[in-house]
Design a protein around this nucleic acid. Sequence first.
RNA 1: GGCACCAUACCCAAGUGGUUAAGGGACGGGUUUGCAAAACCCAUAUGCGGCGGUUCGAAUCCGCCUGGUGCCUCCA
Length: 497
Amino acid sequence: MPHPFRLYNTLTRQPEAFEPIEEGKVGLYVCGNTVYSDAHIGHGRAMIVFDMVVRHLKARGWDVTFVRNFTDVDDKIIAAAAKQDVDPLALSAKYIERYREDAAALGLVEPTVEPKVSETIDGIIAMVAALVERGHAYENDGTVWFAVDSKDDYGKLSGQKVSELRSADVGSKRNPADFALWKAAKPGEPSWPSPWGEGRPGWHIECSAMSKEHLGNTFDIHGGGLDLVFPHHENEVAQSECATGQTPMARYWMHNGLLTMPSGQKMGKSLGNVHLIRDLLAEYPHEALRLYYLQSHYRSPLPWDPATGVQMDEALAMLARLYEAREVAEEMGGKEPAADVVASLGDDARRLWELGNEFESRFLAAMDDDFNTAQALGLAFELARALNRFANHKKAKKRGGPVVAPALAGFKLLGPSLGLLDQACDDFLEEVKVKRLGAMGVERSDIEALLADRATARSTKDWARADAIRDELEAKSIVVMDRTDGVQWKIRLATAE
RNA sequence: GGCACCAUACCCAAGUGGUUAAGGGACGGGUUUGCAAAACCCAUAUGCGGCGGUUCGAAUCCGCCUGGUGCCUCCA
C-alpha cells in the first residue's frame, strides 16, 4: 500500500491530503520546456523539484505515471528559427536533444511519456473542434479563439476576473481575454491542415490535449512553475473542462517557486546573467545543484546571485559534508550486538543510535508533508553531526559499526527520495576535483608535484619548507589536510560573508 | 488598477496555536594538530518587518501599515 502524503493545492490555496483517482496510482503532468534554447537554472529548479516529487512518490510505493511534454511548436521557436535561418522543427528537435542531455546530466528519472506538440496535432484539432461544437470557441479568418465568457468559473485557478484583466488590443477577438486555440498559418511557419484551414496550435491547447491523451479527462496532479498559473494553466483548465465536459481537469495543482535575482534584476540573455544547466554542471557535480534547490521548500522563492557563485560553492560544501560523514560511518567495523556497543561507548553512541533509529520516520514524515525537503535535509545534517561526534571516540572505528548502522540506513533514503548521495564518496570527491580544477584552470600535475615536495619536507621535519609549499597550494585554492591515514587535499570553496 | 505571494539571527533557511524557534554558512572562544585543515565542543534571535486584535497561550489566526516578488502580451 502506498503511503499517504499531503500537498499544497494551488486550486484551493491550502494543503490537502492526497486522494488518488485510482487506488495506488498517481497521474502527474508537468509542463516541460519550450525548446528554442538551452535550459537554464530557472528551468533546472522545476526539473529537479518534480524529479524529487516523482522519486519520493515512487519510493513511497505509488505507481506514478509521469508525463512531461515538449512544446516544439510555438511562436518563440518560430521567431528564433527565423533569426537563425533554420527550420523551426529542426531547431526544436535540436533543443529537445540538448534538453535530454541536460536531464540525464541532472540525474532526472525518465518520464513515463514525453509527448511533443508536433506529434499531438490530431488530438489538438479534435479538442478545438469539440470546443467549437460546444459553443466555447469561434473561428475568425482561420484562427480559432476560446471564448472566456462561455465558462462561468473562468479564473478559478488563478483568482483572476476577466473584467479586471489589463488587456492589450482586442483584434479579431470578441473579448480581450479570449485566447488562440488554433492559429492560421503564416508563410514559412510550420502548419497542419485543419477544418479551419492550414494552421498550428495556440500556446495552451497542447497541454490540454497531451494530458487528456495520456492521463485522461481528469487526472491527479498538474505541475509547473508559479509563473504559469496565469494565463497558461488557467487556460488549460478552461479548454479541458469545456472540451470534455468533465470537471476538474486536474484535482491538485503544484507550482514551484521561481529563482529571484538580486535587487530586482531579471535573468535574461541580453543581461548576460543566464546560467545554463550544462555550463554549471561542467563546473559542479549535479548533486550540488540539486542540493542547492532542495535546501529550500519548493514553493518558496529561491535567491540566485549570478555574480558570486557562492551558492553553488556552499551547496557543494554541504554535500561534501554529508558524503564524508557517510564515509566515516562506512569505515567503522565491529560485530558485537549494537546494544552492547552503545552501552559501553557512552552518551554520544547512545545519541547517534537513537537519532539513527528515529531518522526514517522523521525524514519520511517531512517529505510526506508537502515535500518538505528543507526539513528532511536538516535532519540529515543533524544525523551527520551526531555521527562525526561519535566518530571522535577512539574505539568508534573498530567497534562502532553496529551503532552507525541505523544512520547509514538513514542516509540511504536520500537517494530514492531526493536523488542525493547516490554515488560512492571517492567518486564524488574525484568528480569535485576534476570539475573544480577545470573551472579554476589549475593543472592537477602541478598540485601533485607540490604535494610530493611537501611530503619530502615533512619526512625530514622541515616544517618551514612544508608550510611554504602549503601556502603556495593555498594560493591555488588548494587546502591540504594532514591526517593520520595520509595526506588529502581539496578545493577551497567560497563562503558567504 | 486587478490577482497571487513573501518578510524568521550577519547571510541562507525550516517551523503555520502550546516544552529550550530545526539545519547550513560566516564571525568569536576552545579540544585536536609540528603548525594548519577537517571534525567536535562552547557562544551566538526572551526574538520571528511594524502597530493593533482574537486566545489561558501566536512567529503561527484576523485587521491595518511598511518593504519586496511574481503574474495580468505566450517566461519554469
